[in-house]
């Protein structure tokens, strides 16, 4: 694939993997409204991923389903932060903030056919970012227990920011963390980097096993 498509694949895979993670909350979210919110966000991310995967697949003569269902873990290019298990609700919301803040930077940079996907995604992502920010503030600046959980989420996620952090990214999340009464950890603290070489956490394989099992058991099935 061309370097352009490699870049698109990072975004597409990030959206698809995070979409799958959010969909795991269905019927398990703290409230029905939040169940619906996470489902809607997952759906937006799924649509965004499809839009880009269609472009990546077209270049290789494949289709989006082959990319989604028949690639092995080492071929996925999502930022590793997207594949981490959901943890608790605080962890899920802080991760959504981190990833949405990254997507807010990358969507406007896309050109060519991908710009059409991005033009829609920018608006949807802004709404996700707002939703995640409001929860991070609410939980961080909430009860002693919710603050403890958000702090634990921050400590857990910070070492996974390597592929998504930039100067703009730090500038975007710092005011949210401050309002949430959390101090932003050091930008130069250690971080894991890059799935570009095919290395992933052990979690992606399990995620893909679930996501890909039906398509692999019944190749070409339609319903």
């Amino acid at each position: 694939m061309s370097p352009t498509s490699e870049g698109l694949l990072t975004i597409a895979d990030g959206c698809l993997v995070l979409s799958h993670r959010l969909s795991e909350w269905m019927s398990h979210a703290p409230t029905m409204e939040e169940d619906i919110a996470l489902g809607n966000i997952a759906l937006d991310l799924l649509g965004q991923a499809r839009g880009l995967l269609q472009l990546c697949a077209a270049e290789t003569g494949a289709d989006e389903d082959q990319f989604a269902y028949f690639r092995e873990p080492q071929d996925w290019r999502n930022p590793l932060i997207c594949e981490l298990p959901n943890g608790d609700f605080a962890f899920t919301m802080l991760r959504l903030l981190f990833v949405s803040a990254w997507l807010a930077e990358v969507w406007p940079t896309l050109g060519g056919d991908a710009a059409g996907v991005a033009e829609k995604a920018v608006k949807e992502n802004a709404y996700h970012l707002r939703h995640a920010s409001s929860w991070v503030v609410r939980l961080g600046d909430g009860t002693a227990e919710s603050h403890r959980r958000m702090l634990a989420a921050l400590e857990g996620l910070w070492p996974h920011r390597g592929e998504i952090a930039s100067e703009q990214w730090y500038a975007r999340i710092e005011p949210v963390l401050t309002e949430a009464t959390l101090s932003m950890p050091a930008a130069d603290a250690w971080t894991q980097r890059s799935s570009a070489d095919g290395w992933h956490t052990e979690h992606l394989g399990y995620l893909l096993a679930e996501m890909q099992s039906l398509a692999r058991a019944h190749p070409g099935a339609t319903w």
């Binding site: 409204e33 939040e34 619906i36 919110a37 489902g39 809607n40 966000i41 759906l43 937006d44 949807e124 709404y127 707002r130 939703h131």
Partner: peptide, 13 residues
Amino acid sequence: ELAGFGSTPCKAL
């Protein structure tokens, strides 16, 4: 507002 997301992507509750 009860919730920022609703029964379809285009709606809020």
